[in-house]
Design a binder for these strands. Sequence first.
DNA 1: CTGTTAGCGCTTTCAT
DNA 2: ATGAAAGCGCTAACAG
Lengths: 321, 321
Amino acid sequence: MTADQRNAKLTEVAQRAGVSIATASRVLSGRGPASPASREAVRRAAADLGYVPHPVARRLAHGDGTRIVFAVRDRRTDILRDPFVTRAAAAMSVAAEPDGLGVSLRRLPLDAAAELESIAADRSVAAVVLAGHDRAMLDHLPAALRGRTAAIGAGGTDVDSAAGIGALVRHLYATGRRRIVLVGGPPWVAAARAPLHAYTELMRSAGLPIRVVPGDFTAARGRTAARIVLRRWPDTDAIAAVSDATALGVLQALAAAGLRVPGDIAVTGFDDIPLAAATHPALSTATHPVELIAVAATRAALGAPERGRLFPSRPVLRATA
Amino acid sequence: MTADQRNAKLTEVAQRAGVSIATASRVLSGRGPASPASREAVRRAAADLGYVPHPVARRLAHGDGTRIVFAVRDRRTDILRDPFVTRAAAAMSVAAEPDGLGVSLRRLPLDAAAELESIAADRSVAAVVLAGHDRAMLDHLPAALRGRTAAIGAGGTDVDSAAGIGALVRHLYATGRRRIVLVGGPPWVAAARAPLHAYTELMRSAGLPIRVVPGDFTAARGRTAARIVLRRWPDTDAIAAVSDATALGVLQALAAAGLRVPGDIAVTGFDDIPLAAATHPALSTATHPVELIAVAATRAALGAPERGRLFPSRPVLRATA
DNA sequence: CTGTTAGCGCTTTCAT
DNA sequence: ATGAAAGCGCTAACAG
């Protein structure tokens, strides 16, 4: 590999291989026919010259974009700093790297019609990954985005949160808890429906009271929610939150209220964030393979076949329940 | 704004405005002269057609890339899932979005010469942001990368960790601690030098023993480090870690050893991660504006003037010290 | 100030 | 199987 100063271009490779630029292109891009002979010649020439194709030129000729937009719908303006979002975005940035694609992060307001329209019109966008969406959003996607959009959450690639939360609630029940409160997700997020449904069904079939406080996945909301719970249902003996951050907020508020965990009240989270194991008492929760999901969604957005896969969630029982 | 089906191209805008494509380009790209008259005509035509420039074509003509590579040098293979990295990457993804640039994440081995060379040869790369680097790396940057590379950490954009750690150590001293151990960063990271130096100087000038255990910013290493400390220097009355994750690991190990914090041993972290406030006891630490730093580095890599800025770190005293 | 004319580097018909 | 040539959409010398 005779490393060259300036990057060689396709013309030079073709010249050196003694073929036309068209043939060189066919060989190097892997599309179209080429005789074994010229195939070999081009390969060697490219290697000799240390040829690196120009991805931008390639994409322009193809007519496709150079970046993946991860668009997160949320009312919180700081949602793009949320650990779930940053983890997913980072995983996407890793997954798309080999393709020469970068990822851009955008927040979408609850009504995102206009934003989606402008994203669709931006020719630098290769694909879009959505999160925090509702059904309407998925159904009214701009035509130009169809076929190159994937969603994380309900209707797309998601964690099997129903199974995860279900397992935790069942565990709470099995360990004697009967007044179990769910601190759920935001009502306007489609993905919040599944765990809520799982909880509701379990409680109903066990003949137990259904007690739900809506949340927003934050620790701050967890603190507030816990206070609401204590005031509204003083006999509560377990709180299941749909996010670890929320659960930690709950733990704080309970401690401040002088309650012992799990003695007085058991607490569970969801996500199994790294720090869930590092707190006192260590949090019982269920796994959430965010990175795997983000990568799957990215591939789906880029046209990979399998869509709408549900990733398993496994309960991790530590000290709080 | 007569929204059009297909994206209009510059030719059509020029045609509609009654000027040449060159003039239209000059007006729309903002470079080069143009009479107020044609300026206005082009603007209006573009608006009428809902013209959105083709960023990829633009970049090809300009000869510059379409993505920012955030390259993190570390021996840990899972470094790209580290909260610091994901936070920084996400912030960069937000910052670069308006420019139509995406970000890609890559891990670099300790000796990254070859990788940097290949990044330099990749024409899709607009700029590079480095982290976890050492001096040699910065000095031997491929020529093609000079002028479009910025670093997070020593020699680049960084938090003033010396001031932050210094303030915490001084606080420990002021509250009566005399056997203060530092759990530092990895020796092969340039950015780990500053806090170590700050600690060492303070201890030396106070006539106190210098006790350092190298770390790697992880909670696991914090646990190990704490055990080492207890064995090696049983009289230790304070442990200052250079990362919150590490400090949490330290807290765990101390709790497991039956020691009370801050009664027996005070503990401080660094970063002020959101969960630092949510643990029991709440962690005393110092702020680390990761997002601001990442954005500044991104701009620097893209050619903004100001480089090598140091961002302030403010102590946040909670319960552990 | 403005239009003409080459590119930017690669892909892809369309003949041969 | 292969080459010539026409784009992909925009930018930037270079004359006027």
